[in-house]
């Protein structure tokens, strides 16, 4: 029973890692940018939701809608203002640029909202339980699991079934060819940044009742989302979901039976082991290059 309860809570946190990781993968596979500000972007949008819900007194659904809009705007704005001018930069240059953005966002959050931890008013309760087959599940876990799955399905539909998704995939294959074919490449990049930030915001909102709202709330979930993305393969959307779930379950079972002190480290050790066997991650495509 202890084991299954560990697996259950691992699935629940793992699906949130997956949502955070999806934003990283979506952006990476389209534009080859590894966004180190993904976590802080999610944190700032969650802070915006907090302000809307408390000071502005907007109802929950309205706050969520406004927050997701704000996330989209922030993401694409960052693309236009910063990333596009440094488009020629190397992977490292982009990592440093986004890490600089992360510093700015984290610092701004402390200045604007203060460093203290806040509680986000949330309609689902952690303290209403259902006992199923001897396992205890709370309302919040069920709710956030459902939202995660819906998010993943919507993303699947967006990428695979819409015209925009097609453009996105075309750009990720070869942006020069896509441009020749008349695809507005810049707009595709900007929208991808926006969607990625929205995915981060959903992750932040779902994490908020568990980790609470603070400028450092996304530090660990971002690293885990990144790890999930690498584990599954950075260019594979199903990969990051599987990666996130595996990560959540493995670290919980390890924490439960071996050591809670090394719970976070084990995630990275596992990734290194997997990468040594499969350098492109579990579901990633083999890295091909032209000389």
């Amino acid at each position: 029973m202890f084991f299954w309860q560990l697996v259950l809570s691992g699935l629940s946190i793992g699906s949130l890692y997956a949502v955070v990781g999806l934003g990283i993968v979506l952006l990476y596979r389209t534009s080859r940018v590894l966004n180190f500000a993904h976590g802080d972007l999610a944190m700032v949008t969650t802070m915006i939701a907090y302000s809307l819900l408390t000071s502005a007194g907007v109802v929950f659904a309205g706050s969520v809608a406004l927050t997701l809009l704000a996330a989209f705007a922030l993401g694409s704005l960052f693309y236009f203002i910063v990333i596009r001018p440094v488009k020629e930069a190397t992977l490292l240059g982009q990592i440093i640029t986004t890490a600089g953005f992360a510093l700015v966002l984290g610092g701004a959050a402390v200045v604007i909202w203060g460093a203290g931890t806040k509680a986000l008013p949330f309609p689902l309760s952690r303290f209403r339980f259902y006992d199923v087959f001897g396992l205890r599940i709370d309302q919040l876990t069920i709710g956030s699991f459902i939202v995660s799955v819906i998010t993943m399905l919507l993303l699947y539909l967006l990428v695979q079934k819409t015209k925009f998704g097609l453009a996105m995939r075309a750009v990720s294959q070869n942006d020069a060819a896509a441009r020749v074919l008349g695809i507005p490449v810049r707009r595709v990049y900007a929208v991808t940044w926006g969607v990625s930030a929205v995915l981060g915001a959903i992750g932040g909102l779902l994490l908020a009742p568990v980790t609470f709202v603070s400028p450092t709330m996304m530090f660990d979930p971002f690293l885990k989302g990144f790890a999930a993305a690498v584990l599954g393969g950075l260019d594979s959307l199903p990969g990051v979901i599987i990666g996130g779930v595996i990560l959540g379950v493995v670290e919980n079972v390890f924490g439960g039976y071996v050591s809670t002190a090394f719970k976070s480290t084990v995630a990275f050790v596992m990734i290194i082991a997997v990468l040594l066997v499969r350098p492109e991650g579990l579901l990633g495509r083999k890295f091909q290059r032209r000389v």
Partner: peptide, 26 residues
């Protein structure tokens, strides 16, 4: 591992190394 890994994959191996050193020291 750098012999086999590229770009972001190498990034996470080195990131994991840094985090692991700190955890082990703690």
């Amino acid at each position: 591992p750098a012999i086999r890994l590229e770009g972001p994959y190498l990034t996470i191996v080195t990131l994991g190394f840094g985090l692991a050193v700190q955890q082990i020291l703690i």
